[in-house]
Nucleic acid binder design. Structure first.
Lengths: 206, 206, 206, 206
DNA sequence: CATGAATGAGATTTCATTCAT
DNA sequence: CATGAATGAAATCTCATTCAT
């Protein structure tokens, strides 16, 4: 149904393209994957793709925006049910504990994200965007939980919220990123130890 | 009378090429960097480069082999002077603490390594190679220190050497990799906290 | 019940399209200007444009036909008021003298015409059409004036009407076409000199 | 003989490409002619062409530079033999009188030049270049001759050298450009009349 | 062995035209 | 008749690799 098409349809079409692009980028990497790959995988013509996106780069960018926000929003909902700070942190750790990082789909996710960070590291403007996003969506989130916990007396006063928020994501990132290459990596054990270690370090000893 | 060139000379040329390749890959990424970039940077002709390496991929591969081993061997020497396990772990942490990860050269190092891991993640054979290398050069190294520490009574018996060795590198990797994108990242504070946390978790409490 | 649209309405739409096409072709040239440019400028949909014209080329062709005739018809009216041949030639020269060839709109006019002539020079059929038009509308016009003038004794007998008609347009064309590129070109002075020179050459010396 | 090739050979290669480009551009126009056309006509590979020119535009530009200067330098030599100003002007007129503008090769020349001017008219930087070139190579040339003639008493004092130099080229340009479209155009008669008219206007009447 | 000109497959992107609604 | 999403041929340009000298 070509013309005078609903906005919903157009959104769908964009999503179809993004989904195919995601699969292709995941399989081959951004550079290696071609527009033709996306054409073949999506069944959408080359011209149509360029009707929705100005360039291959734009597909990449939009893919990244959506993903980050999506992941974050998903968690946010469930998180609102938790009460104490430690419960919330536990929730975050458990989210990673329960996820299977060796699942092809998940590996693809990480791979694309890492690739994107790499891409960004060579592009100052993009770095700025990622920096902001990291703070707005991730660091602030954990830092606030820590502050909350300090006010409630659950977490030691000498813990700097920002630093430990950075630390939290660094550690998660470090563990997760091993799994895309090292296939016998003891993921769950490591996450568990990380959790223990992290909480032991920040919790007030009653 | 073909000009017989000494093996030493051949090794030198290979190293020149690899050095230039390193710089170029660091600056633009493996895919973006072209053979012409390497030609320009090294001053070595295109034909000559293809005399020493069968393909651009091969340059990449060899670059990675050398680098990993090199980093490891460097540390190994100094490490042999340390006596206790905790001293040795401290040494490793301090090595990262003292390094400036925002230095362009170092960032380049990490970027290339991450890119290579990504590359490998899409190539089973390469993954195998990386797996082995990680174990042989890195995991085993820390695991042995931990075992040593347990025998000496410095480290808790319930600490699984392999898991904590994996953990060690995951955490380091996680922290370091943030620095290539996030420019205000509190690197030293984070490394310090990681060190504290890690040691606090494994050391026997006297 | 297909909506029966009046012929007048259809003519109007065609004119709207042609006007927009003119602006777009003038701004970018025929090849550079796209159907989308015309769509944007006219506010008429792509499909509608193709209802009125079979192709982009057809738009171009029709545009050229109209324009030439239009310019000619405009002048024709005023010209009928002049009496003597010299007065008529003066009128033609003055028409060009009074026009500002650096006005963006006028420059566009010339540019399009020149481009079209170029286009035609590579297409024998089109050349034929232009040839005829040139004679029918332009050369004959001036040649007749000259003949008139000769009969009235105003113009020398040894002046060949056809040659000097060709000459007239060549010279005008030559002067005008400089202005589309050379911005400091002394247009009015040159036209004036041309006029002097031309009249001095053909007028009988009393 | 690919590598370590003489500069002369490289210049030749460039000329081959330019020649083929000239033919292709003349036949189809700059936009219409493709790199593939040039590849086919020259027998030189696409890659090789891009080794010598950064882009299709650059080929065009260089083609134009060369041509203009070439035409000018050719005339310059013969011109130096003429003594009086009127003789020199006669020489210029005769140069155009003797040339056959209906010869396919010559038509191509003009067509390309006109197309280039059109192209330039939409590109301010290029216009600047053309402006300069026009003055440096063409206007100044004629203006100097006129001044010379005035000092020698051959040419009227009230003739403004710059204006009549502009006029000279405008008129020539106007006449020549008719020939690319109008095939029955009385070229020689018109040039002859132009010459008469021009000289009659500027020469002192003894 | 060194050189660097030549190659050409293949990548991205554009745009006139069609046609289902 | 109007609409504008879809199409895909074709254009420009890149770059790893080869090979004659």
């Amino acid at each position: 149904m070509p013309p005078i098409v609903s906005d919903a349809h157009k959104e769908n079409r964009k999503k179809e393209i993004l989904n195919s692009a995601f699969v292709c980028f995941a399989k081959k990497g951004f550079q290696e994957a071609t527009i033709n790959d996306i054409v073949e995988h999506s069944g959408i013509s080359k011209g149509a793709i360029y009707n929705y996106f100005k360039s291959k780069d734009e597909i990449y960018l939009e893919l990244m925006s959506n993903q980050t926000v999506q992941v974050y929003e998903n968690k946010k909902l469930e998180l609102s049910k938790k009460k104490s700070a430690i419960e919330k942190l536990n929730f975050w750790f458990d989210a990673y504990l329960e996820m299977d990082p060796f699942l092809e789909e998940n590996k693809a996710h990480f791979a694309i994200h890492i690739e994107f960070k790499l891409h960004a590291s060579r592009n100052p403007e993009l770095m700025e965007v990622l920096n902001e996003r990291r703070h707005k969506y991730f660091v602030r989130e954990i830092a606030e939980i820590i502050s909350e916990g300090q006010m409630a007396g659950e977490i030691k006063q000498n813990v700097q919220p920002e630093v430990f928020a950075d630390l939290f994501w660094s550690v998660i990132d470090g563990v997760v990123s091993q799994t895309i290459v090292y296939k016998d990596y003891p993921y769950q054990q490591t996450i568990n130890e990380v959790k223990e270690m992290y909480l032991q370090r920040i919790m007030t000893t009653s």
